[in-house]
Design a binder for these strands. Structure first.
Lengths: 317, 317
DNA sequence: TATAATAGTGACAACCTCTGTCATTATTAC
DNA sequence: GTAATAATGACAGAGGTTGTCACTATTATA
């Protein structure tokens, strides 16, 4: 094998292995230890961050900075990755320690000229928005670590009514609509609940010895299925104007079932958990004249109640 | 310079240059043409997709698949890029032709073992949500191309009231809240307007010969500043409950100015364009009892009007 | 049709780099 | 102390690399 090829393969090999000795590599590549030593020095000069320790159980290591081997990317692929990563700048807080901007700069810098040109062209023309939030969330890394390692976390949580202390076992974290959310098993409520990370005032791994539950099979994709047996559905029916249809499609978090007519108006007919009726009452109120709720009766009653409260507040009755 | 180093640099060089001849490279690297030919063949064997043409104006080219040279990434950097790109799967439509998933697979495949482990651990535990939408948008690529190349596009647009045909010159496109938006200069209204891409029923480059305007200085970051001279601000003041504060922070698209008190309640005091008062009237109505609007008088009047309409509709008066 | 520009191949000798071996030093765990 | 490991230097020989030259093939252009 020629030296150049050996160097390339060596680069990949040392990246694959956490730890290795010169002897091992010499055996693997069928060359002498002396040669491997010289090769490793050359890799070092090429930028691979090697670190060595002498003595028994010593050996070589690659430091946490790894070399990504040469990868063939199509222009569009590289561009897509670039803008996806670029979108992370909208997040004030990320669960990763490193700033993604450094990775982005490297990526950009090493890109072939025409890809870079393409990116430059598009730089101010494409974006994946996220709501910009001022609030910084410090606990993301801890929550993620807890989710990965199945650990219990004690948090102080500011819910709608008041602050409370509780122990949770996170399922994971996700960003949505500019906020970070953490679904977790709540030992207080004995069930899965959704927490908003910016309302977590403080968080730390549990020290009181609460035994973690085995929730390795629960993840972001399926946690909602667990512990929701008490859910009762009611059927909402509402008549929507053209604008009402558009706002429902835009603002409801789950894609609503709406039969849309030729002229753009439509009719919503959807089952929702009974517990969410207060939310929908306010939602349809916010649509003003664009929506007319026909059922269920409880929902209409809630809307009437809100209406009279508001009428009183604004001096109409 | 040693052969290995020359090969590495050669790889970067050919990636940087669109087109090149053997002679040029020979001059640049101070070696003979024969050597460069041998090197290029070796690069070819290593996977760089080279293509050559003989004759005058011939030469070498690298095909559109480019080789990304070795890059040193920290674990966190690679992880961040991975998840950012992973988030693109939420988008049914993207302005890039390539599927980002192919890039992601390559990226993942070539990653050092421990980085891959780290990603696997986190795979179902971190996510950047985007509202999942059923609608597919076909015109994204065209709009983006038009924005980059300063071209005029003729669209059929379904606005709040009705469908209409108009010529626009896109500024760019961005995804927000699950929808794609396209700010553009509208030749019909003679000003910049925001279009929602899924409401663009059809789009094509203009054929009627409308002269594009020079809007190269207008981009996603500043387009709102152009052509908004008629804007009149009014000052909204509202008292908010704890929940009201949270909903305002979550749902208003611009970060609102809210003075938050110890107990979580707060007071909003913000200037907004007068034209948006109808929107805010409905918004505050949707907050129900969590908000009490104190001013301006026009806003309160709008709310009262909505209230009495709704009261009539729901049989309260 | 001739000419020039380009890629591509083969051969060969000179040169230089790479490789293995050996000797040696330094460090550290056990 | 001993064994395991990295690190360095010297040297000779093997083998790879390079430049030159001669030649072929293709193609745009005058």
């Amino acid at each position: 094998m020629s030296k150049s090829k050996r160097l390339m393969e060596l680069m990949m090999t040392v990246n694959r292995m956490r730890k290795f000795t010169v002897k091992e590599l010499a055996a693997e590549f069928n060359v002498s230890s002396r040669t491997i030593l010289r090769d490793l020095q050359e890799l070092s000069e090429l930028g691979v961050p090697l670190y060595s320790e002498v003595g028994p159980h010593g050996g070589y290591q690659v430091l946490k900075e790894r070399i990504l081997p040469p990868i063939a990317f199509g222009v569009d692929e590289a561009v897509a990755m670039f803008f996806a990563s670029h979108a992370l700048r909208h997040y004030l807080s990320l669960p990763f320690e490193a700033e993604s901007s450094s990775a982005l700069q490297k990526f950009y810098f090493y890109m072939p000229g025409d890809v870079r040109d393409r990116i430059d062209e598009m730089k101010n023309r494409v974006d994946f928005h996220a709501h910009d939030r001022r609030q910084k969330v410090d606990c993301l890394g801890l929550l993620l670590e807890a989710a990965v390692r199945q650990r219990v976390v004690t948090i102080r949580y500011g819910s709608k009514q008041e602050d409370s202390e509780r122990s949770i076992q996170p399922v994971g974290i996700y960003a949505s609509n500019g906020f970070w959310y953490c679904p977790a098993y709540c030992f207080l409520r004995r069930g899965f609940r959704l927490f908003r990370c910016d309302r977590i005032r403080s968080a730390a791994f549990d020290e009181t010895g609460i035994e973690p539950l085995d929730h390795r099979h629960v993840h972001l994709g399926n946690w909602e299925e667990f512990g929701r047996e008490e859910r009762i559905d009611v059927r909402i029916v509402a008549e929507l104007s053209r604008e009402g249809v558009q706002r429902c499609q835009g603002e409801l978090s789950h894609v609503p079932f709406i039969a849309v007519r030729e002229d753009g108006s439509g009719r919503l007919d959807q089952r929702v958990p009974e517990s969410e009726l207060p939310y929908f009452a306010k939602f349809f109120l916010g649509l003003g004249g664009e929506a007319t709720v026909e059922g269920p009766e409880e929902l209409v009653a809630l809307i009437r109640k809100l209406l009279s409260e508001l009428s009183a507040k604004y001096g109409l009755m």
